[in-house]
């Protein structure tokens, strides 16, 4: 049985989530609820839950502040938020889970199931939490990307990534160290995640770090010579966008 607590400032929010958990999820018990950061910290310390549903937006401090204040993070976290783009980006960078309110019962079930698997596998996303907090500390823009793979989670700085290449439902990430990390996410996910950080989708199979472009060779679409010496084809349709973004750097 997973022991869970809910931290949310809105009464309606807390009650709705608790009701949904009870109706749709098995093997999980809500052992407490808190309506602010301060009461949440106390609750977690006292109840020692396995799982915390943590609302990000709260008056007098948000969910991340709470995480800062909890010393032993022996629990998994599912963030809940009505709407917080920046927080969600950071969370995704760290490969953590979140729920959007109003809560979709199916998503809730999946998230809880994933947590149950983690718990049963005795693995943890805690390192990811650290990464999240570290990313949040840096000025707004998260720089460390968590890459969950078969061996666990690799944390890489964005400037270490030269390019990403689609490989069916996986994505191969090529690093400056010469290593290639295969991640079970689509290239589209990374395009969404990284397009604000000087990454550009130059081809349906390629996402490149513009800062690692060494040379552009003209052609119909052209070819880009990357800093590691690899050549990446640029599709005709993406050429203009690519050149404009390259210029903007």
């Amino acid at each position: 049985m997973i022991r869970a607590v809910i931290v949310d400032d809105e009464l309606k929010g807390r009650e709705t989530l608790r009701t949904l958990i009870m109706r749709h999820c098995k093997g999980i018990e809500v052992v407490g609820m808190a309506d602010s950061v301060a009461s949440g910290v106390t609750l977690i310390r006292n109840a020692a839950p396995d799982l915390v549903f943590l609302d990000i937006e709260m008056p007098g401090g948000n969910g991340f502040d709470l995480l800062d204040k909890v010393k032993d993070k022996n629990f998994e976290i599912i963030f809940t938020t009505a709407y917080s783009q920046y927080a969600i980006k950071a969370i995704r960078f760290s490969a953590l889970d979140y729920l959007l309110k109003p809560v979709n019962p199916q998503e809730l079930q999946d998230a809880v199931l994933k947590v149950a698997q983690l718990l049963s596998a005795s693995t943890s996303n805690r390192r990811n939490v650290d990464a999240l907090l570290s990313n949040l500390q840096e000025n707004n823009e998260p720089k460390k990307l968590a890459l969950p793979n078969t061996e666990g989670v690799a944390f890489v700085n964005l400037d270490e990534i030269i390019r990403c290449m689609a490989d069916a439902n996986y994505t191969g990430i090529y690093l400056t160290s010469g290593k290639k990390i295969l991640v079970a996410r689509t290239l589209k996910d990374y395009e969404e995640l990284l397009s604000e950080d000087d990454f550009c989708r130059v081809h349906h199979a390629h996402l490149i770090n513009l800062r690692h472009v060494r040379e552009y060779i003209k052609g119909e679409g052209g070819t880009v010579l990357m800093s590691d010496g690899t050549r990446v084809e640029v599709s005709r349709r993406k050429k203009n966008e690519f050149l404009e973004r390259l210029k903007a750097i």
């Binding site: 809105e10 929010g13 709705t16 709407y83 309110k101 109003p102």
Partner: peptide, 12 residues
């Protein structure tokens, strides 16, 4: 926020 919180309230 307003919209989703409102919807949240309705969900409640």
């Amino acid at each position: 926020h307003f919209i989703f919180n409102t919807l949240n309230s309705i969900q409640h």
